[in-house]
Simulated assay, not measured.
Amino acid sequence: MRDVLIVGGGPVGTMLGCLLALRGLDVQVLERRTEPSLRSRAIGIHPPLLGVLEQVGVAEALVRRATHVEEGSVRCDGRTLGRLSFSALPTPYPYVAMLPQYETESLLRERFQELRPGGLRGGVSVSEVRRRHDYAEVVTDAGETFQARYVVGADGARSRVRESAGLPWLAVGGRETYLMCDYGDTGIYGADAVLYFERGGVVESFPLPDGTRRWVAMTDFLAEHASSSDLADVVRHRTGAVVGQARGVASAFEVQQHRTNRMVAGRVLLVGDAAHQISPIGGQGMNLGWLEAAALAPALARAVAEGDAAASALAMYSRTRMRAARMAMRQAGFNMSMGRPVRGLRLQARNALVRTLAVPPTSALVARAFTMRWL
């Protein structure tokens, strides 16, 4: 009977495992994959989360490896509408650290192995979670059963843990489609992030380590068969920018935001994408999951140590983090709406709004919002 079982060994589940192990809890992570994914999905790590990574003991290595984005610009029709700087943020990390998710995940896994040798078990597919009065059971596809005082679902948007707990999955807002690929960085933008709010839809560009730059473009449909050359053509047609040599294959994805209505069901809890699916535009998904892990770890530690306080501690976690998730979803919805194709008066109005948001004192508030300072 372990204290906590975490279903899902991605960056959020592994982060939570580290935080619980540091508090002395008996924790195990169950992961479906046998090998880490090399897909580069989340890349931006915001200042508040660098502080959490510092607690875990991996911030120094991550900061040393990552590219630091201290400024960004918004452009349209070949002109700069505004610039945003993170250098004045009241934090030891006045930048957004850019690092491919698989590298971040590798650092967390190595740290978890140091804290809990053998604590991460791969190749385990969970089929069901059963809630009992004073513990919970995890049943695998292979028929194994694991027991723990608490089970945490960190198993993503298609969470079997959430499904087993009977929690709803509510769609929020409309759908958008995007195309993404990494290319060699031509060096034109330095370490800046660039957002092109163009007539045909947004194009985003972010620097990565090893002379790489990620490009993301909104599309009219889910372009599943598009190539890196196709995305390069879209970027050039909309913005006039020329990308470097492709360093991977293009990836099409669809954004549909979802959330559950609570993050606790008895001794089963949710964290990260298992509780909410948030648009990656703005880079909030993984970061929000880490903020939840940082809030859940002390709540679980108290629940294990003080049974009488468990219900109130976990209810507080659910209430406060659901509120933050709703705020993040509204912000992500705003980000998506700003990037949609526009023409005429609507284009002029949007550009005027961007110019307003990019000058003091509003720019300081935008920088705080973009880096998740109030979540």
Rank of each mutant, 00 (worst) to 15 (best):
Q101F: 02
A193D: 10
G190P: 01
R111L: 02
R121P: 13
D192C: 14
P117S: 06
G143K: 11
E163T: 12
L89D: 02
A171Q: 13
V151G: 10
R131F: 06
P94A: 10
F86A: 06
A136G: 04
P117R: 00
G184I: 03
D141C: 14
T140P: 13
V129N: 02
P90V: 03
E176H: 13
E144M: 14
V126H: 04
E128W: 14
V96M: 09
R111W: 07
Y95K: 08
G153P: 08
F86E: 09
P168T: 02
F146C: 02
D185I: 06
A97S: 11
P90A: 00
P94W: 09
D141Q: 13
T145S: 10
E176T: 15
E163M: 12
T91I: 04
A171T: 15
P168W: 06
E137D: 12
G153Y: 01
G174V: 00
A171V: 12
A157N: 02
G156M: 04
A88R: 11
Y189M: 12
L179D: 03
C181A: 15
P92D: 09
A191N: 11
S164T: 06
E163C: 10
F197K: 02
E144P: 05
P168H: 04
G118C: 04
P90S: 03
H133M: 10
P92T: 08
Y102N: 15
R109T: 10
L179I: 05
R111Y: 05
E144L: 15
A142I: 01
E110K: 07
G143N: 05
R116W: 07
V139T: 11
Q113G: 11
G122C: 06
L99M: 03
A154E: 04
P94E: 09
D185G: 08
T186F: 04
G118Y: 03
E128T: 12
G153E: 00
L120D: 06
G190L: 00
V139F: 00
C181K: 01
G174S: 01
G190Q: 05
Y135F: 11
Y150L: 11
I188S: 12
E176K: 11
G119W: 09
G143T: 09
Y189N: 09
R109S: 10
S159N: 08
R160Q: 13
M98W: 07
R158H: 12
G119S: 07
E198A: 02
E128A: 15
V194W: 03
P117A: 03
R158Y: 08
G119M: 05
E103R: 11
Y95I: 09
A193E: 08
I188Q: 13
C181T: 07
G184K: 01
E144I: 14
F197V: 11
L195H: 13
R158N: 13
V139I: 15
G166S: 08
A136Q: 01
E144K: 09
R158W: 14
R149T: 10
A142W: 05
E110C: 11
V129E: 00
G156Q: 02
